[in-house]
Design a protein around this nucleic acid. Sequence first.
DNA 1: ATGTCC
Length: 472
Amino acid sequence: MKLDRLQPLSETAWTLTGAAGAAVKLFATRDLLEAMDEKVLEQIANVARLPGLVGAAMTMPDAHWGYGFPIGGVAAFDAEEGGVVSAGGVGFDISCGIRCLRTNLTLEALVPCLEPLADELFRSIPAGVGEEGSLKLSVAELDQVMRGGARWAVERGYGTPEDLDYVEEYGRVEGARPENVSELAKKRQRGEMGTLGSGNHYLEVQVVERIYDREAAQAYGLAEGQIVVSIHCGSRGLGHQIGTDYLVTLARAASRLGIDLPDRELACAPIKSPEGQQYLGAMNAAINCALANRQILTHLAREAFRRVVPGARLDTLFDVSHNTCKVERHRVNGGERRLHVHRKGATRAFGPGHPDLPPRYRAVGQPVIIGGSMGTGSYVLAGVRDNPAFSSASHGAGRAMSRRQALQRWSGRELIDELRGRGILIRTKSMRGAAEEAPGAYKDVDAVAEVTEAAQLARRVAFLKPKICIKG
DNA sequence: ATGTCC
C-alpha cells in the first residue's frame, strides 16, 4: 500500500491522517505495509466507520485482504453504544485456530521414524475438501457438540480432562445456541467432526529450534530439540454454512435498521438486536464445534504417534482460536468496559496475571501461536501486559499473494520435492492445494513474529521448524 | 475457508 495517507506513531504502528484517522491503527513496519494490498487500508477504514466501535479498528502485522474485514483485523464494539456484530468480522472459518502439543520426544530420537510417522499420520488424519471422518453424528449429537465443545469430545473418550485446562475458555464457550444453526449447516457437519479440512489447514510435526525466552519456555514445557505437534483447523462445513446463512440475515437487519454500510460485505447488526443475538448464538455453537474438532484430532494424532513410537506422550500446550467474536472486559481510557472483540485472523493474547489463564501460565502470559506457511516455521509467543490491541496478536505469516497468483507461479509437485530436499516431509491429496500454499505466497513469518514483538503485541518464546506436514 | 458455482 501507499503510505501517503498514513502517519507513523512509531516504527511499528501507524494511523490514518485526517479527522477520523485515529479510529484506524495498523501495526506493521514500513516494509510490511509497502508489501500489503491497498485493500487492507480501505477495508479497515470501512470497519472504523461501523457503529459503536471502541478505540481503533486495527490490523496485525500479518494482515491481508479478506471478505469485508481484513484478515488480521481486530475491532471491539460496545453493545451499550449501538455496537455491532459482523459475520465478516469473524470470518467463514469460525474459530479456526491452532492446538499445539508438546511431546516427550527429541528430534534426534525421532529421525529414523519420520517417514513411517508421516505415512501413519496421513492415514489417520482425514484431510481435504469435503473429507469425512469415521464419526457420523446425528443432528441431536451435533447439538451436544455445539453445546459442549472440547468437553463433549473428552467425555466421548477423545483426549483427557487435562487437555481442557489448556484450551481457551477451558474447552467450551458459553452462549451457544444450536437452535440458531440451520439444518443445512448441521447436515454438512455430520460427517466432518475429526477432520482437518483444506486450504491453509495442516497438522505439523515440528522441532523446537530456538528458545527466545527461557522463563516462558519453561512454563510452556518447551526445550530446544524437542518435538511438538501443531494442528491448524476450524469448524469445517458448519462454520462456513453459518457464515453464509448469517451474511444474508445480518444484511437484512442492517437494511431494516438503516445502518449505513460502507461495504456490503460488512453486513452487521447491533449486538442487542434479535439478528445480532442470533448470530452470536450460532457463532458460539461453531466455536464449540471447532474446539471439539481440534480435540478429536488431538486424540487421532496421539494414536498415530503411539503406533509408530510406543510411549510417545503428546500433552496440550495450548489451543488458540483466531477467528472469533468474544465478550471480554478491557480497560479503555481508565475505565473497564465490556466489549465484543472481533478477531479475524488474530489471536487472543492475554498478558501475565490475567485471571482467565490457567495457573501454570498466569505468571508468563498466554501462549500465542503464529502458524507459519507450509515448510517455513512457526512461533510460540507469550502475551504481554499493556497490549495496545485489546490483547490481540498476529496469527500466522499472512498471505502476500492470492491463491490464483500462486497457482500460476508454482507447481505443487516441485514444491514438495524441494521441501523434501530440505528435510521436510509433505503429505497431501491435493497438488493444487500445495501450490496455492507455496511458502513464497506468504509473508516472511520471521518478520511477522519480530514485528509482533516490536509492536508489543506479544513476545517471542520459541521458534518451531517443521519436519512433517499433513496438508489439507 | 468452502460439498473450491445449486
